[in-house]
Design a protein around this nucleic acid. Structure first.
Length: 477
DNA sequence: TGGGGATTCCC
DNA sequence: GGAATCCCC
């Protein structure tokens, strides 16, 4: 039987469950399929940078598949509602008897896949879905009362006991029997998307690049625990866009940190690798939260009581935040990094998100949407989880009274101002000390030729305003 | 995966 | 005046 592998956000040939299973079982060749759905991507606020990255990686995937005699066919429709018809058409056109794909867990994606599965099964086509996007399948980890965890730490304790169960990496499949089909040409432009600001220099596509990054990261993972918090250096893995697009599997990421001992894997205890594993666990945790409480991905807070918060819908303050001109150097540097590169250091994601939701008291959904529209690594579950953490509306989120002081944050994590001045060059001549001190900074930027704004809001005032509002809704912690 | 303010203690 | 500590938010 000939098999169809439907690629979505798993743009790789290494350690790809759907591809490996299809190759193992098919006897008459394998065909790859990818469906462009630009209208749906716009609805989902997928960033220009991310869609560009997908297309670049599709090109690379197509070449890797061609070497295995697997032609990658690319078809297009506007939104998910037309996908079932398109998959059925492709299956019959390519002469395939079954379909393999790796599950996606978002609401719209799950409903799409259910419809596709129904449509295929009604035509006696077998459907094989694999759980491949996270390390521990969502819904698998439950409390003793058979309920999903709402707190990260106990979730992680269980996760640790399961994470290494299925660590045998899947090899790249062997060459398949030839199929009389040509691979599609991958588009380099897409109507409705603007790729002019894409930065392929920062994020080269393809699995060869992943291998390089994995090796590089493995060599320095020992100091990841501390280095990852310093945004001026390359202390993080720089893998997130690849993980979001599935150019690397979460198991490959886990394998960097865990040593194989006597043929079995164990979760590391050393700070660096353990912190990295934690980050992978957060990714699984937030996916699990989204599946168990889909409302979080439908513009609802996890903590329903926070619906009573009167967010300030101030478009001017929001624009200043988006554009990186709040007058808080660390916040502005973070936002400008996002705008210029499509990526933001994790420490800055927390600082900027908390600034928007607490200092400006602007609705976390506005920030969540803006991040998605800009991030090359945007992932619904992780982005939503992070925003609800910062806004104190989520599961196991930061207590509302724990409000980052942007000046203390930059003093701790960017003491010499190296990161700040990289993205705010107009502050290049301001002494580092003044970058972390509101009064000294106000004196420095009092010079209008510097062209850097005064603080948009006073820290002390803003902090109290947020505390008062959260106290008002009586959300006890 | 804190910060602010008050107090105390020390220099 | 500054570091350490404690309490509250």
């Amino acid at each position: 039987m000939r098999s169809l592998v439907w690629f979505r956000r798993d743009l790789r040939v290494t350690d790809n469950s759907a591809l490996a299973h299809a190759a193992e079982r098919s006897t008459d060749g394998v065909v790859g399929l990818f469906i462009l759905t630009p209208g749906q991507w716009r609805l989902h606020d997928d960033a220009d940078a991310k869609v560009h990255f997908w297309l670049q990686n599709l090109q690379s995937l197509s070449q890797s598949l061609a070497a295995l005699n697997i032609p990658l066919r690319v078809v297009s429709c506007d939104k998910f509602d037309q996908v079932p018809k398109l998959v059925c058409q492709s299956v019959s056109q390519f002469g395939c008897g079954d379909v393999y794909f790796n599950a996606e867990y978002e609401v719209n994606e799950r409903s799409r896949d259910a419809q596709v599965t129904d449509a295929l099964q009604s035509q006696s086509i077998q459907v094989h879905a694999s759980d491949d996007r996270v390390i521990v399948r969502p819904g698998k980890i439950k409390t003793k009362e058979d309920r999903p965890y709402q707190v990260f730490t106990p979730y992680r304790r269980v996760w640790d006991t399961l994470a290494c169960d299925d660590m045998t990496p899947l090899a790249i499949p062997p060459k398949q029997p030839k199929v009389d089909l040509k691979a599609s040409k991958i588009p380099t432009e897409l109507a409705g998307f603007d790729f002019s600001a894409a930065r392929p220099d920062l994020w080269p596509a393809g699995e060869a690049e992943v291998d390089k990054r994995l090796a590089k990261f493995k060599a320095k993972i020992g100091s990841y625990g501390t280095d990852r918090d310093i945004p001026s250096i390359s202390g993080t893995s720089q893998l997130s866009p690849y993980l979001a697009a599935g150019v690397v599997s979460p198991r490959q990421c886990l394998a960097v940190a865990i040593g194989r001992r006597n043929g079995s894997f164990t979760i590391p205890s050393a700070t660096g690798p353990a912190t990295w594993v934690s980050e992978l666990t957060w990714r699984d945790f937030y996916t699990d939260v989204m599946v168990n409480a889909p409302r979080v991905s439908m513009h609802q807070p996890f903590k329903r009581s926070t619906n009573k918060i009167r967010w300030r819908d101030d478009p001017d303050d929001f624009a200043a935040w988006c554009e990186g001109r709040t007058g808080y150097p660390i916040v502005d540097a973070g936002m400008r990094q996002l705008n210029q590169t499509g990526w933001m250091h994790n420490r800055l994601r927390m600082v900027t998100a908390m600034f928007l939701t607490k200092h400006l008291l602007i609705d976390w959904r506005w920030g969540e949407k803006y991040f998605m529209q800009k991030l090359i690594d945007g992932d619904l579950a992780a982005n939503n989880g992070g925003w609800q953490w910062s806004a104190s509306t989520g599961t196991d989120s930061v207590p509302y009274f724990r409000i980052f002081n942007p000046f203390s944050q930059s003093k701790r994590f960017d003491p010499d101002g190296k990161y700040i001045t990289r993205f705010c060059p107009e502050l290049g001549n301001v002494p580092a000390k003044a970058l972390h001190d509101s009064k000294k900074l106000a004196d420095s930027v009092g010079d209008p030729t510097m062209n850097y704004p005064q603080c948009i809001v006073d820290h002390k005032f803003a902090r109290q305003r947020a505390l008062d509002e959260f106290k008002r809704i009586g959300d006890a912690h």
